[in-house]
Design a protein around this nucleic acid. Structure first.
Lengths: 186, 186
DNA sequence: GACAGAAAACCGTCCAGACGGTATGTTTTC
DNA sequence: GAAAACATACCGTCTGGACGGTTTTCTGTC
């Protein structure tokens, strides 16, 4: 008879904790280490408890995907709202979101998303939808070659950062940021 | 008593076949599907046979990594050799290698590398070494902001291509290529 | 070139542990 | 008291890998 059984119940907190643990595991020990046993244990919940929130592993991964993309949507929307210039607005929000994530939680989140996308083919389809939606919404303002190039560069920097090969120093990083923002306006 | 036991032995061919199958599986069904059973079966070898060439799974992944990076090294060296201009030479080779891989095998290979790197933390360390080595070798000729930016953009395009969200059309792609090559010379 | 070993290149079987998932019970919350 | 939020126990399958056997290939010797 464990204590967990008797403690107060906070379903939403448990859910968040589970997702957080799954994300951390995926980043630190690779996506293969994200097992129901490992996640539930590290989250302080029994496997049964975990499976109550996410009926199977796929739904756990989907939950992770939803969590991250919703965060990303929120951040992008906020940044776009305070940007007076329409042209390249989405691109600038994109740059800002990945270049200077608010708090380091967000940065971690985007990384998790990348790892999940690449290792789980099923999520690639969902990502494609997300991507297409944003692309269609911002066609006209963010379809220029320069804007596209800027977003590609952000993705590349992001990937290198994730792999730990980002050798760019702080000063150069700042210059690059300026440069990318300029490109979004061309 | 199977036929495979009696057929002619081609250790090198088997080795290559195993690596090719592992690569294909990883790309099409995700890295989680790369199991010793699946690989050996798809490669037409028994698991025992597979484990003769690669004593354990880690060494199989390492073998895949070696195979791809050696290919990549070869391609980069070839491209650099025919480039008369020192400045940005490595960056141009990098761009060319990923933008217009010779045959589609190479393109597949680079993709496999990306997937493997992200899903297998152990390989990230090895990738860091590879990356550092090339960076040090070409410091002085390829350290400019523009060259770095160009390489980042290539990585980004690459990632989007891998995820299937590459919406850029052929004409724009050609323009982008030109643009990146120009950037390598600044 | 023949021939005996030695080594390499396989195959088939078995196993312990991990994994995803089910079924059922218990406690808390509504 | 019904439903949600857990826990515990258990099961079938898969996975990495060990092991011993069999066939082919290589290597040195005469």
């Amino acid at each position: 008879m464990s204590k967990a059984h008797h403690r107060k119940k906070h379903p939403e907190a448990v859910r968040r904790q589970v997702l957080a643990v799954a994300a951390r595991l995926s980043l630190e020990k690779g996506p293969a280490s994200v097992t129901l046993d490992a996640v539930s244990q590290a989250a302080g919940v029994s496997k049964g408890g975990l499976l109550h929130h996410f009926p199977n592993k796929l739904s756990l991964l989907d939950g992770l995907f939803d969590d991250v993309t919703q965060s990303l949507d929120r951040v992008l929307a906020e940044r776009m709202k305070v940007d007076p210039e329409p042209k390249g607005r989405f691109t600038r929000a994109y740059i800002a979101a990945f270049f200077q994530p608010e708090g380091l939680e967000d940065g971690e989140r985007w990384k998790v998303l990348t790892v999940a996308l690449i290792s789980e083919p099923h999520l690639r389809d969902r990502w494609r939808e997300w991507f297409d939606r944003h692309l269609v919404e911002n066609v006209g303002t963010d379809s220029s070659l320069d804007a596209t190039l800027a977003r590609y560069a952000v993705d590349g920097l992001w990937l290198d950062d994730l792999l730990g090969v980002s050798v760019i120093d702080t000063a150069m990083r700042a210059t690059l940021l300026k440069r990318l923002l300029d490109m979004s306006r061309l």
